[in-house]
């Protein structure tokens, strides 16, 4: 097993462990910090799989911007009063069973003997190649993403504007 192959399994272990820790934490802050570790390890994995631009953007966007946004929102909203809730095992059991069955089925499919597992050769798509390819073949998608961001900005500003009840609700009586 070469060094890069060993690195893949090491990174896969780190990603799985930190994501598993993230989904089981009680406090959302701890979950978000574990997820930052997971996304960072995913970025290193992307660099290993020959995608340096995707790796850099993975650190900047999901691990940086989105997770910091999550942290800010958690800090902004503060903690709410704990409510009595059923911490029965059943609430976790059904989703857990569904997830385990799905993973087991998928792993059996992947491990079925008609696939021969050949290690992939190392390759690298440079940032220039990827950017040129993206803008040459997928420029409508890039334009669509820009429109999507604008709509998301408008939607977010609409949602968080100051909520007050209608000022003249009572003197707006239907006129005969």
């Amino acid at each position: 097993m070469s060094l890069t192959q060993a690195l893949f399994y090491l990174l896969a272990g780190v990603i799985t462990l930190s994501t598993g820790m993230a989904v089981t934490r009680k406090q959302p802050v701890h979950a978000v910090v574990y997820l930052v570790v997971s996304f960072f390890a995913t970025a290193v994995l992307f660099a290993l799989l020959g995608a340096p631009l995707v790796a850099v953007l993975q650190i900047m966007i999901p691990a940086g911007a989105v997770m910091v946004l999550f942290l800010f929102i958690i800090i902004l909203l503060g903690r709410e009063a704990p409510k009595p809730r059923d911490d029965s095992a059943m609430r976790w059991a059904l989703p857990g069973i569904l997830a385990i069955i799905t993973v087991a089925a998928g792993l059996m499919l992947i491990a079925s003997p008609q696939h021969q597992t050949i290690p992939l050769a190392m390759a690298k798509a440079s940032a220039r190649e990827l950017g040129t390819y993206l803008y040459r073949h997928y420029w409508p998608a890039v334009e669509g993403i820009s429109v999507l961001f604008f709509v998301a900005l408008a939607g977010a500003m609409f949602l968080v504007r100051e909520f007050k009840p209608k000022p003249d609700a009572q003197n707006e009586e239907p006129k005969p």
Binding site: Q5, F8, Y9, L49, P119
Partner: peptide
């Protein structure tokens, strides 16, 4: 050499 695609898909 990196891992085979099957292992990436498993992850």
């Amino acid at each position: 050499m990196t891992a085979p695609l099957e292992h990436i898909l498993a992850l």
